[in-house]
Amino acid sequence: MTTLLTWLAGHHVGLYLATALVAALWAVSEIVSTFAAQPVRALRTSGALLLVGLNAAFACLVLGAALATGLAPSLWTAVGVGLAWQMLIRTRINFIQPLPGEGSSEAVGFRLDEMYTRLQAFCRRQIDRTLVSERVRLIEQALTMLDLEELARRAHLVLAALLATGPADPRNYVQKILNSEMDEESKELLLVLTILDHGSPALLRDMIREAERGKKDAKEKTS
């Protein structure tokens, strides 16, 4: 136990943990602000988990490089690196030490920056895809469970409070859909999307649950 503690202290494990924690929190805040419409759902995706992990790992890498250059191993250094590591790998200052046998420190810093940017874009695409796939499943469920009349009524309520910000008036939108020459299924789909986008996924889920309960009750009464 003592040996383990000595080893941990010798390798500044606490500092790496602090850096990882700060970087992870930073990543969480980025995800929440990027996916402001569905922050909790976005955070639950595997892409989000990967992005948080990547942030922590890259920050630890930068801390390792910083300590190797002789920077004092203090909590402030760890927190500072956790907050500013992205900026540090983007600057061309002689901060990141070249790998043995490799080119200049600038090249290493730049490659790290490029690699992180690509991985970050990949994670964001993964989050986008997961969220869209979830929406598609919810839409399919709504289309099976809800009829045109109910969808129109709810969509109208959702849009009633919205103010026109462009040439199209939101309050006339439901009527516009109903009067269009589209088939019934397409009208239902647009109404579901209206509730989902201008209302919320939670509202649509509630409507599906109500419809399921209604069907169940009706079944019990007949049996």
Binding site: R135, A168, D169, P170, Y173, S180, L193, L196, D197, H198
Partner: peptide, 9 residues
């Protein structure tokens, strides 16, 4: 979804 967001068909 984009059509719905902009209140267009």
């Amino acid at each position: 979804e984009l059509a719905v967001r902009t209140f267009m068909l």
